[in-house]
Protein backbone atom coordinates (compact mmCIF):
# COMPACT_ATOMS: atom_id res chain seq x y z
CA UNK A 1 0.00 0.00 0.00
CA UNK A 2 2.85 2.33 0.82
CA UNK A 3 4.31 1.74 -2.63
CA UNK A 4 0.98 2.52 -4.25
CA UNK A 5 0.72 5.79 -2.34
CA UNK A 6 4.29 6.83 -3.09
CA UNK A 7 3.83 6.08 -6.77
CA UNK A 8 0.61 8.10 -6.59
CA UNK A 9 2.51 11.06 -5.20
CA UNK A 10 5.23 10.86 -7.86
CA UNK A 11 3.37 10.17 -11.07
CA UNK A 12 2.50 13.09 -13.26
CA UNK A 13 0.19 11.21 -15.60
CA UNK A 14 -3.29 11.64 -14.20
CA UNK A 15 -4.62 8.48 -15.85
CA UNK A 16 -2.02 6.39 -14.04
CA UNK A 17 -2.86 8.22 -10.82
CA UNK A 18 -6.53 7.31 -11.15
CA UNK A 19 -5.80 3.64 -11.77
CA UNK A 20 -3.35 3.61 -8.87
CA UNK A 21 -5.92 5.12 -6.55
CA UNK A 22 -8.35 2.36 -7.54
CA UNK A 23 -5.74 -0.28 -6.67
CA UNK A 24 -5.01 1.55 -3.43
CA UNK A 25 -8.71 1.42 -2.53
CA UNK A 26 -8.79 -2.35 -3.00
CA UNK A 27 -5.72 -2.74 -0.79
CA UNK A 28 -7.39 -0.57 1.82
CA UNK A 29 -10.48 -2.80 1.63
CA UNK A 30 -8.39 -5.90 2.37
CA UNK A 31 -6.79 -4.14 5.33
CA UNK A 32 -10.27 -3.31 6.61
CA UNK A 33 -11.30 -6.98 6.33
CA UNK A 34 -8.27 -7.89 8.39
CA UNK A 35 -9.48 -5.37 10.98
CA UNK A 36 -12.89 -7.11 11.12
CA UNK A 37 -14.74 -4.23 9.52
CA UNK A 38 -16.51 -6.26 6.83
CA UNK A 39 -19.27 -3.74 6.16
CA UNK A 40 -16.79 -0.93 5.75
CA UNK A 41 -14.57 -3.06 3.50
CA UNK A 42 -17.51 -3.89 1.27
CA UNK A 43 -18.41 -0.23 0.92
CA UNK A 44 -14.82 0.78 0.31
CA UNK A 45 -14.39 -1.83 -2.43
CA UNK A 46 -17.62 -0.84 -4.16
CA UNK A 47 -17.22 2.93 -3.74
CA UNK A 48 -13.49 3.54 -3.77
CA UNK A 49 -12.50 1.07 -6.43
CA UNK A 50 -15.68 1.08 -8.46
CA UNK A 51 -17.70 4.26 -8.49
CA UNK A 52 -15.06 6.87 -7.70
CA UNK A 53 -12.65 5.45 -10.30
CA UNK A 54 -15.36 5.74 -12.92
CA UNK A 55 -16.12 9.29 -11.79
CA UNK A 56 -12.47 10.32 -11.88
CA UNK A 57 -12.11 8.86 -15.37
CA UNK A 58 -15.22 10.73 -16.44
CA UNK A 59 -13.78 13.97 -15.10
CA UNK A 60 -10.41 13.25 -16.74
CA UNK A 61 -12.17 12.81 -20.05
CA UNK A 62 -13.38 16.38 -19.67
CA UNK A 63 -9.96 17.76 -18.68
CA UNK A 64 -6.38 17.29 -19.80
CA UNK A 65 -4.81 14.06 -18.62
CA UNK A 66 -1.28 15.34 -17.99
CA UNK A 67 -0.10 17.41 -15.11
CA UNK A 68 2.09 20.47 -15.72
CA UNK A 69 5.63 20.34 -14.40
CA UNK A 70 5.78 22.31 -11.16
CA UNK A 71 7.80 25.52 -11.34
CA UNK A 72 9.88 24.81 -8.23
CA UNK A 73 10.95 21.84 -6.13
CA UNK A 74 8.42 21.04 -3.41
CA UNK A 75 10.80 21.55 -0.47
CA UNK A 76 8.47 23.72 1.58
CA UNK A 77 5.47 21.35 1.49
CA UNK A 78 7.82 18.43 2.13
CA UNK A 79 9.30 20.00 5.23
CA UNK A 80 5.87 21.00 6.53
CA UNK A 81 4.65 17.42 5.96
CA UNK A 82 7.61 15.85 7.74
CA UNK A 83 7.24 18.21 10.69
CA UNK A 84 3.54 17.41 10.97
CA UNK A 85 4.29 13.70 10.73
CA UNK A 86 6.82 13.88 13.54
CA UNK A 87 4.32 15.72 15.73
CA UNK A 88 1.55 13.20 14.96
CA UNK A 89 3.77 10.19 15.66
CA UNK A 90 4.80 11.76 18.96
CA UNK A 91 1.11 12.24 19.79
CA UNK A 92 0.18 8.70 18.70
CA UNK A 93 2.63 7.26 21.23
CA UNK A 94 0.27 8.45 23.96
CA UNK A 95 -2.72 6.60 22.51
CA UNK A 96 -3.81 3.18 23.79
CA UNK A 97 -2.02 0.12 22.44
CA UNK A 98 -3.36 -1.69 19.38
CA UNK A 99 -6.12 -4.19 20.31
CA UNK A 100 -6.03 -3.33 24.02
CA UNK A 101 -9.36 -4.50 25.52
CA UNK A 102 -9.07 -1.90 28.29
CA UNK A 103 -8.95 1.04 25.87
CA UNK A 104 -11.69 3.64 26.45
CA UNK A 105 -13.24 2.89 23.06
CA UNK A 106 -14.27 -0.59 24.26
CA UNK A 107 -15.62 0.61 27.60
CA UNK A 108 -18.02 3.37 26.57
CA UNK A 109 -21.21 2.57 24.61
CA UNK A 110 -20.04 -0.43 22.59
CA UNK A 111 -20.95 -3.08 25.20
CA UNK A 112 -24.54 -1.87 25.18
CA UNK A 113 -24.71 -2.00 21.39
CA UNK A 114 -23.45 -5.59 21.52
CA UNK A 115 -26.28 -6.67 23.85
CA UNK A 116 -28.56 -6.95 20.83
CA UNK A 117 -31.56 -5.09 22.20
CA UNK A 118 -33.24 -4.86 18.80
CA UNK A 119 -32.69 -8.49 17.79
CA UNK A 120 -30.74 -7.76 14.61
CA UNK A 121 -27.64 -9.95 14.37
CA UNK A 122 -25.58 -7.50 12.33
CA UNK A 123 -24.76 -4.91 14.97
CA UNK A 124 -23.49 -2.43 12.37
CA UNK A 125 -26.91 -2.30 10.73
CA UNK A 126 -28.65 -2.01 14.10
CA UNK A 127 -26.48 0.88 15.24
CA UNK A 128 -26.64 2.57 11.85
CA UNK A 129 -30.39 2.54 11.46
CA UNK A 130 -31.66 2.44 15.02
CA UNK A 131 -29.32 3.70 17.74
CA UNK A 132 -27.82 6.41 15.57
CA UNK A 133 -30.75 6.85 13.21
CA UNK A 134 -30.73 10.62 13.45
CA UNK A 135 -27.06 10.69 12.53
CA UNK A 136 -27.70 8.59 9.46
CA UNK A 137 -30.59 10.83 8.44
CA UNK A 138 -28.11 13.71 8.44
CA UNK A 139 -25.63 11.72 6.34
CA UNK A 140 -28.28 10.83 3.78
CA UNK A 141 -29.23 14.49 3.62
CA UNK A 142 -25.59 15.38 2.95
CA UNK A 143 -25.44 12.85 0.11
CA UNK A 144 -28.68 14.26 -1.28
CA UNK A 145 -27.33 17.82 -1.05
CA UNK A 146 -24.15 16.83 -2.87
CA UNK A 147 -26.24 15.31 -5.64
CA UNK A 148 -28.34 18.46 -5.88
CA UNK A 149 -25.18 20.58 -5.99
CA UNK A 150 -23.79 18.55 -8.87
CA UNK A 151 -27.05 18.91 -10.77
CA UNK A 152 -26.84 22.65 -10.23
CA UNK A 153 -23.19 22.79 -11.38
CA UNK A 154 -23.29 20.55 -14.42
CA UNK A 155 -26.77 21.01 -15.83
CA UNK A 156 -26.64 22.39 -19.34
CA UNK A 157 -28.04 25.87 -19.84
CA UNK A 158 -28.06 26.35 -23.58
CA UNK A 159 -29.73 29.73 -23.94
CA UNK A 160 -27.74 31.26 -21.11
CA UNK A 161 -24.44 30.03 -22.54
CA UNK A 162 -25.02 31.82 -25.85
CA UNK A 163 -25.14 35.22 -24.14
CA UNK A 164 -22.41 34.34 -21.67
CA UNK A 165 -19.56 34.14 -24.15
CA UNK A 166 -18.33 37.75 -23.89
Amino acid sequence: MAFAVLALARTRNLFAAVVLSGAYSFLMATVLVALDAVDVAMTEAAVGAGVSTVLLLGALHLCKSDEAKPAHRPWLPLSVSVATAALLVYGAMGLPDFADPQAPIHQHVAPRYLQNEVDVPNVVTAVLASFRGFDTLGEVTVVFTAGAGIIALLRRRKHKRAGDGQ
Binding site: A37, A59, V127, V142, A146, G149
Partner: peptide
Protein backbone atom coordinates in the same frame (compact mmCIF):
# COMPACT_ATOMS: atom_id res chain seq x y z
CA UNK B 1 -16.50 -8.85 18.81
CA UNK B 2 -14.72 -5.85 17.40
CA UNK B 3 -16.22 -2.50 18.26
CA UNK B 4 -19.11 -1.76 15.85
CA UNK B 5 -19.33 1.98 16.46
CA UNK B 6 -16.34 3.09 14.30
CA UNK B 7 -17.60 0.84 11.51
CA UNK B 8 -20.91 2.68 11.45
CA UNK B 9 -19.30 6.11 11.44
CA UNK B 10 -16.87 5.22 8.67
CA UNK B 11 -19.49 3.45 6.57
CA UNK B 12 -21.47 6.64 6.24
CA UNK B 13 -18.29 8.68 5.87
CA UNK B 14 -17.20 6.68 2.80
CA UNK B 15 -20.44 7.29 0.93
CA UNK B 16 -20.53 10.95 1.90
CA UNK B 17 -16.87 11.13 0.87
CA UNK B 18 -17.52 9.92 -2.65
CA UNK B 19 -20.45 12.30 -3.00
CA UNK B 20 -18.29 15.26 -1.99
CA UNK B 21 -15.46 14.02 -4.21
CA UNK B 22 -17.88 14.09 -7.12
CA UNK B 23 -18.92 17.62 -6.13
CA UNK B 24 -15.25 18.67 -6.20
CA UNK B 25 -14.78 17.06 -9.60
CA UNK B 26 -17.83 18.90 -10.88
Amino acid sequence: YSNPLPHVLILTAIVVGVATLALGLA
